[in-house]
């Protein structure tokens, strides 16, 4: 149960960031609430790497910055398509390989794909993803390769 301290710190930080009331009574309530949430989390059998991925916060943050850039680019691309659908709309399905990733990395990869407008993950499983894309790409696997590598690095710490 090495994930309990991580979740404890994260929940406490969340409470303090939201609350802004520093008196002893409120801090006592905070402690009770965090403990109750932890008990519920364990009781619901959620405790684990996915419930508490906070030890990977720094690589995730670096990845998020890169992802924001991608989101801006794809927002513009989809905006262009909305203005001129008949010329640019070429929907296709792409099957991507996600073998050997943890569940967290698969979810991160799939969510990054969905988060960038123009691509949405239709099906996600441990071994691969099925992606629906709005535009034609030059090479299907090259196109998603940077995101696949970077999300793997962010979630699992390997390239």
């Amino acid at each position: 149960m090495i994930y309990v301290p991580g979740l404890f710190i994260a929940l406490t930080a969340l409470w303090l960031a939201l609350s802004g009331h520093g008196e002893a009574f409120m801090l006592g309530l905070a402690a009770a609430s965090v403990c109750l949430s932890l008990i519920l989390t364990m009781r619901l059998r959620l405790m684990g790497r996915e419930a508490s991925p906070y030890h990977r916060l720094a690589p995730m943050a670096r990845y998020a910055v890169w992802l924001m850039g991608e989101i801006v680019k794809s927002n513009l691309a989809v905006l262009h398509t909305i203005i001129e659908p008949s010329a640019r709309l070429r929907p296709r399905l792409v099957a991507l390989d996600a073998d050997g990733r943890s569940e967290l990395a698969t979810a991160l990869f799939a969510n990054s794909i969905t988060l960038t407008p123009g691509t949405v993950t239709l099906e996600a499983a441990r071994d691969g993803l099925l992606v629906h894309s709005l535009h034609e790409g030059a090479d299907e696997h090259e196109e998603f390769a940077p995101m696949a590598a970077k999300s793997l690095l962010a979630a699992d710490g390997r390239g």
Partner: peptide, 29 residues
């Protein structure tokens, strides 16, 4: 403006999947 563009996209695109792309402009951008 982006939300309106997203809504226009939802109306202009042909099927469920392409419409989700248009809607995700509102979600993210």
């Amino acid at each position: 403006g982006l939300s309106i563009a997203g809504a226009v996209g939802v109306l202009r695109f042909p099927d469920v999947y392409t419409r989700i792309h248009a809607a995700s402009i509102t979600d993210t951008g």
